[in-house]
Amino acid sequence: MGSDLIERYLEHVRVERRLAARTVELYAIHLRTLAEKAAAANLPLDQVQTAHVRRWMAQLHGAGRESRGIALVLSCWRGFYRWLGNERLVDANPVQDVHAPKADRPLPKALAVDDAVRLAEHHDADADPWTEARDHAIVELLYGCGLRVSELVGLDARASTVARGWVDLAAGEAQVLGKGGKRRSVPVGAKASEALTAWLAVREDCAALEAASLRDPASAAALFIGRNGTRFSAQAVWKALRLRSLKAGLAAPVHPHMLRHSFASHLLQSSSDLRAVQELLGHANITTTQVYTRLDFQHLAKAYDAAHPRAKVRSETRPKAKATREPK
């Protein structure tokens, strides 16, 4: 009877719900697992209870199944028993109140130090000097100051009472407006200052800037502008950075937040000053910043595995799935 119910349900999702063929295949696999576990417990599928489902989920978790995978299995089983309920074959859905274990928070993606430096030092010989100066300054400011892309595009070329943020090269700092309307000062390093100085020297050489200033003064006052003379958008920064990283020879395209993650991770590797990194990133809660300590552990573990004479034994025995996670 169990296999007949499963086949009827698969036909239902294939024909009436019109699910993709691959989805139906996955449903068949998950429901086969359900049938096997029910058979091992001498249970007809229509007599499965919530306690059984919880036990089976615990078994999947103990066998190393990831939280996301367990959630997909539960979703499939939940839909199956919902259909059985609609067909009046069960009185209640035993999966309704069962939830997958909380998934581990994924680690932010950060570049290796060598890759970050390669990107920062890249010169695009194919780009015109104006665009090259702007995009180089954008990379230096994102990586050198750990700015969010929204903070970067919110900067104006000079300080004013209406500016959301600006860079004071003489003082060597940037004033930015972060999340929640919170302002903070961020130091601007020598390389970023050099790149910004070069960009400001050519920024006015934009044919459309004067006309844009008359149409929309606030947009034209932006530190980073496009060829139309108006504020460079976050989407435009993403596109420019992606192209630049590929031209620099990096294995994967880089996005603005990856440079922010790299800034935090590399700073922690050198200083281990979590509070300072919290202030520089503008995090309201230090627990948000603590995720970078996990990246730092990865860095230390890789260095150990590469250099220590006993690392081979350790790396062979270290659980791969837990190597980047904090102990619970």
Rank of each mutant, 00 (worst) to 15 (best):
A220M: 08
V139C: 04
G181P: 10
I286D: 00
V24E: 13
K37H: 14
A39P: 01
F232I: 15
A195R: 11
S193W: 02
V73Q: 15
A71S: 14
R148N: 01
R275D: 03
G172V: 12
A240K: 11
A208L: 09
V113W: 09
W77E: 03
L34Y: 09
P101H: 02
L141D: 01
W83F: 08
V90L: 00
R231M: 05
W77I: 06
H61I: 05
A222T: 11
H308M: 10
A252M: 15
V117N: 05
A100W: 07
A120S: 08
A284R: 07
Q269H: 15
V153S: 03
G2A: 03
I6F: 04
R260S: 04
E132M: 02
V237S: 03
E36G: 03
A248C: 02
A127T: 01
S262E: 05
S67T: 10
L214G: 09
A58H: 10
C145G: 02
V162I: 11
A303N: 06
A159Q: 03
R54D: 14
S270A: 15
L34A: 06
D46K: 08
T161W: 09
C145I: 11
S271Q: 10
L169Y: 10
K312N: 08
S75T: 13
R68S: 08
A133Y: 05
D296K: 13
V291K: 02
P101V: 01
A39D: 14
Y304W: 11
H261N: 12
L19E: 06
S271T: 13
G282E: 09
R68E: 08
R148K: 07
A264H: 01
G189R: 01
V139E: 02
E11H: 09
R54A: 12
R294P: 02
A307N: 07
S315I: 00
L74K: 07
E25I: 05
L268F: 11
E151Y: 10
V291E: 03
R227F: 02
P327G: 15
D296A: 15
G85H: 14
A159I: 00
R184S: 14
S75V: 15
V254H: 03
P101K: 03
A222I: 09
T317M: 06
L169N: 04
L280D: 10
R18W: 12
R88C: 00
A307E: 11
L274W: 13
A71T: 13
R242K: 15
G229F: 06
R314K: 13
F263P: 07
L280A: 11
V13L: 07
T288V: 10
A303Y: 00
A100N: 06
T293N: 08
R164K: 10
A71V: 12
R158H: 14
R32T: 07
N285W: 03
G85M: 15
V167M: 00
A192W: 08
H136F: 05
V313G: 14
P319E: 12
R203M: 10
K320T: 13
P256F: 04
D273G: 06
P101R: 08
A301P: 01
N42F: 12
A252N: 15
A171P: 02
Q235D: 12
A236K: 12
I286W: 07
D296M: 14
V117R: 03
P217E: 05
R22L: 13
A284E: 15
T197M: 05
S213N: 03
A303T: 01
R68Y: 00
Y9A: 12
H122L: 00
A321Y: 01
E66I: 02
D216E: 13
G154R: 08
L43Y: 00
L45T: 09
S219W: 13
A110R: 05
R14M: 10
D128T: 09
